[in-house]
Nucleic acid binder design. Structure first.
Lengths: 108, 108
DNA sequence: ACGTGATATTGCAATATCACGTTAAATTTA
DNA sequence: TAAATTTAACGTGATATTGCAATATCACGT
């Protein structure tokens, strides 16, 4: 097999999972942290500081972009990334909601 | 390649990623929710309510167990699972910390 | 001891992911 | 226009994940 049977789960369950999945790789955690630290950050800077090849970083960036967590600004020949803070907030809320509801269920 | 270069990342980055990875599949989200809802829940109940085969559920349970999120109680021939609330709390804290710190960085 | 129900393990096929070399597209600079 | 720089896209090999059937194990009742 190898695929996920998304259709048997609720929209919220799929949403929590897809957000979490993006956070489920240390390179993507590192990328998100660096972009938010440096405000504007291009691909090359990430390649140098993280130590993975450019195509690999680019691929991880694409996955973070997929869930809408990145904004792009073109400045000359550089493409600068920054965090979409509204989306980050949304992401945090969705994941935290899962934890809160689970904890409430556990304690009742 | 196909493997993750964990050694180039910090312990915290790897921790956030490994917790998130476990939450990165809707079946595991559903399993965690059902176990916390029903307090005690055995494998068979999950198989019936979720609609995946028993080995698949068992495999997902093993991954959730790996990060210490499950407790087991044997009652007769039944094995009941419940949530390790301390670990759930820890997990929530680690993930939430990542979000909080990222947001702080974005806003400064 | 035997059968039964519940769960774990094994082995497999299909697919996804990770990492990278190479190439291509776009833009700046000479 | 040509060269240089940056990043996305494509292709590929290696590994991991998902899901399941078959089997093994484990605990209980008879």
């Amino acid at each position: 097999m190898g695929f996920t049977k998304k259709h048997i789960f609720s929209d919220n369950q799929n949403l929590v999972a897809s957000y979490s999945k993006v956070l489920g790789h240390p390179a993507r955690i590192s990328i998100i942290q660096q972009i938010s630290d440096k405000k504007h950050c291009n691909c090359n800077q990430l390649v140098k500081s993280i130590g993975l090849a450019q195509p690999t970083i680019s691929q991880h960036l694409a996955e973070i972009r997929k869930i809408g967590l990145l904004k792009q600004t073109v400045k000359g020949k550089n493409l600068f990334y920054s965090i979409n803070t509204e989306k980050l907030n949304d992401c945090r809320r969705i994941v935290n909601d899962f934890f809160v509801k689970t904890q409430v269920s556990c304690n009742k």
